[in-house]
Design a binder for these strands. Structure first.
Lengths: 149, 149
DNA sequence: CCTTGACTTGAACCGCGGTTCAAGTCGCAG
DNA sequence: CTGCGACTTGAACCGCGGTTCAAGTCAAGG
């Protein structure tokens, strides 16, 4: 009825996600089609924004389940707010670790030590990383195929 | 023969990794036991450092296979060096994305919008994140069980 | 010598995040 | 009305990163 609704194919194309992924996210409660045209799902254009958010958060280590919880957040849900704050903290630590790792990696790329891993500078940097990450937060992550089509 | 060698149990304990994980890493070529005492693997203490590195890098999105390649890096391996530099770049972008996501999350935690996801500030921040991540680098990641034992 | 107990092995299994497949259903063009 | 082609579904399958299990082997102690 609403001409501004997007066909699943279009959403897939514009979000660079496979239609199967869209259906998968729907099953997990991350997105909802606006309606159907015959069998075909149609989506409100806003879904693109949401998908961008999902893709981004996934790349940051949020699990799909976790996202499901966050995405239906309402201001009244204080537990969720605390969860978010906690996540922000975790992200912060993760950022620190990544930064140190990046620096170590940069150094390793130009370092002279025979087994690169044994470079003292590298080790020192890694030591910092490791010590900060001693208690591993529950931060998981996955990857993409991003090709065909 | 060398009294300073560590039993697998000790390595497991000190690295906070399950023995099964140690064997798994060995099979993947990430670590090598120094020898055996009967059937039992014994490790050079240095393995702890290496494990710290592994754990850290894993948490940063390196796959075990990838680590296998990096860990036997020799300075002469220019391809690997380039790979490392590339990885550093990717990490850098990832850091940027994580930072923006963290900030969005912090805001979301105190924001008033009814479905939190619809807060304009939040969206704006996410938009930034998303646009930067439009071409997702191959950065994957996994999580821990960290309990029994 | 025989038990005990912690390790050994390979193989099976698990959860996650999807993809792929077979079979079915629809809108639309001719 | 009849295809055609693109979607629909559920179920099977995949790779990753391990864990768990059954069965075997060893060192040490009684």
């Amino acid at each position: 009825m609403d001409a501004s609704l997007l066909d699943i194919a279009e959403v897939a194309q514009r979000s660079r996600l496979a239609p199967s992924a869209l259906r998968f996210y729907e099953k997990k409660g991350l997105i909802t089609p606006a309606g159907r045209n015959g069998l075909r799902r149609t989506y409100h254009p806003d879904v693109l924004e949401r998908l961008a958010l999902i893709t981004c958060a996934r790349s940051a280590g949020f699990s799909v389940a976790e996202l499901g919880r966050f995405l239906q957040a309402r201001p009244s849900d204080t537990a969720l707010r605390t969860g978010m704050t906690a996540k922000a903290e975790a992200l912060d630590e993760q950022i620190g670790r990544l930064t140190r790792l990046r620096d170590s990696l940069r150094h390793a790329a130009v370092c002279e030590h025979e087994p690169l891993v044994d470079c003292p500078d590298f080790k020192r940097a890694v030591g910092n990383v490791a010590s900060t990450s001693t208690a591993l937060p529950t931060v998981g992550q996955a990857q993409r195929a991003g090709s065909s089509r």
